[in-house]
Design a protein around this nucleic acid. Structure first.
Lengths: 99, 99
DNA sequence: CACGGACATCGACGTATGTCAATATTGAGG
DNA sequence: CCTCAATATTGACATACGTCGATGTCCGTG
């Protein structure tokens, strides 16, 4: 019912959707979001999957480069934090398409 | 903050996100949704892109098989209708992850 | 400063994806 | 029936993706 997405809008939204279009990444994102302060250590995330450490690292990189996760290194550990506003923006745009 | 997605939830959500993770399909979906009755003829959609007819047909099939578009043939023409509830469900789940 | 642990990067592999030209299918009309 | 227009399917191609093992980098600690 709203205006159709412009070519540019679609071109900007698509990479975000692509980052979210993988079951492992969806779970990673929700695991980070579910952590008390919206922040999780990679060491915790690795154990939640039956996948190699490089694979998890790769997926985290994809989510980070898409702008969905913030990355901060503290000492030996790396923490990822969810960017809730970005995710909310995607959800909003998506919901807006259908209505 | 909510519970993290289960492996099954992620496995069900991911194919929907995958279907939405393409700029052409995002525009197709929004074009269909923007049509007066939430329904659009393929003939209209073809002209909106600089892509071959088979390519558009392919993308519509992906959206249809993902459960995001309904398909109905009337005479020579085929009409696709948006399943707004499904799209809203996806947007809702996504928004729920971040909060 | 050497070692060990946490995480990232690289290189390789099989598989999936987007695109097109060519062809098939379906239905309307003469 | 035969033909034409609208859409789908097929086959082929290049590229992108998910995964792993091996290796690199950074940092705290003895």
């Amino acid at each position: 019912m709203a205006e159709p997405l412009s070519s540019e809008q679609a071109g900007q939204l698509a990479p975000l959707m692509k980052a979210l279009a993988d079951p492992v990444r969806l779970r990673l994102l929700s695991l980070v979001a579910a952590h008390a302060d919206g922040e999780a250590c990679v060491c915790d995330l690795n154990d939640a999957f039956d996948l190699s450490q490089p694979t998890i690292s790769h997926h985290l990189k994809v989510l980070h480069e898409a702008g969905l996760l913030d990355r901060s290194k503290r000492g030996t550990w790396v923490y990822y934090r969810i960017k809730a506003d970005v995710l909310a923006g995607v959800a909003g745009l998506l919901g807006g398409v259908g209505r």
